[in-house]
Amino acid sequence: MSMTGTTRQRVPAVEGFFTLDDEPHLIGGRLADSGGYCFPLHLGGSDPRNPAAGVEEVHLSRTGRIWSFTNSAYPPPPPFIITEPYVPVVVAAVQLELEQMVVLGQVAPGWAVDDLEVGMEVELVTGVLYEDEECEYLTWQWRPLGERPVSGGDDADG
């Protein structure tokens, strides 16, 4: 939530979870034999027919529908890194149609639980998880495709 307009480097908080382009994708795996998917890639899937070697890297669909959602009114404990003042993290579990799987993620800043509904269409974006002097550390976030509501939370990285 940088308001300072600095040009800090934007880097993933952990490598290998999403692409960094304007229309980011989650990096998942596709199981060669069954055609099933997994996320994250490096933790594989649990298909008993597929050894880890049978997983190819793929980009997952960047839109889906909210399966469920909630928030964390209290600051999560470490290893979550809190930016003060703490704004409740909003979390959505999102159903990807092609992959027939549900992926968890934060909801983009500006959206509160009262703005969300099960079934709402969302797209993948990247957002700042925390920052230091040199870098903004990014995570993947789900952002509703509709207009941002006026009731939304603190304005941030529009």
């Binding site: 998942g28 199981l31 069954s34 055609g35 099933g36 998917y37 997994c38 996320f39 994250p40 899937g45 649990s46 298909d47 092609l98 992959e99 027939q100 799987m101 549900v102 992926v103 968890l104 993620g105």
Partner: peptide, 8 residues
């Protein structure tokens, strides 16, 4: 972070 996939 995700469920298994029912695709396939």
């Amino acid at each position: 972070l995700a469920t298994d996939s029912a695709a396939g």
